[in-house]
Computed example of a mutant assay.
Amino acid sequence: MANHKSALKRVRQTKKRTERNRFYRTRMKNMIKAVREAVEAGDKEKALEALKVANKRIHEYVSKGIIKKNNAARKVSKLHKLVNSLNEAA
């Protein structure tokens, strides 16, 4: 364990940051899951609405530093591809 003042502060900051990031990552996973469930149900309107929300939030998390830019781009691209597959199936 850290012994000097600055190291102790770093431990406190890291703990707080980890907790906050965990909250946002879980939230992001749930949004992605909502899009996938809507696609599996075949509900295009619901899928598009969920995709719109997920897209906005995922890019918001990039600006907060929760995830990296390319990670967000990859997730959003995958979701768009999934929702667009509803067009081909119809």
Rank of each mutant, 00 (worst) to 15 (best):
M1Y: 09
M1N: 07
M1R: 08
A2T: 04
H4R: 06
H4F: 10
H4W: 11
A7E: 15
A7D: 15
L8T: 07
R12I: 09
T14W: 06
T14R: 11
T14Y: 11
T14Q: 09
K15Q: 09
R17K: 14
T18N: 11
T18Q: 09
R20E: 11
R22L: 15
R22N: 10
R22G: 08
F23S: 01
Y24P: 01
Y24D: 08
Y24R: 11
R25W: 10
M28C: 05
K29D: 15
K29Q: 13
M31V: 01
M31L: 15
K33T: 14
K33Q: 14
K33E: 14
K33V: 02
A34E: 15
R36F: 02
E37S: 10
A38I: 08
A38D: 06
E40T: 11
D43N: 15
K44S: 10
E45T: 13
E45D: 15
K46H: 03
K46N: 06
A47H: 07
L48H: 02
L48W: 01
A50H: 05
A50S: 10
A50Y: 03
L51Y: 01
L51W: 02
L51F: 05
V53D: 05
N55S: 07
K56A: 14
R57Q: 09
I58R: 05
E60S: 12
Y61R: 01
V62A: 02
V62G: 02
S63V: 02
K68M: 03
K68N: 06
K69Y: 01
K69E: 12
K69D: 08
N71P: 00
A73I: 11
R74M: 04
K75G: 00
V76Y: 05
S77E: 10
L79W: 04
L79F: 05
L79V: 04
H80I: 05
H80K: 14
K81P: 01
K81C: 00
L82T: 08
L82H: 02
V83E: 05
V83D: 05
L86D: 08
L86P: 11
A89E: 14
A89C: 02
A89G: 00
A90W: 01
A90K: 08
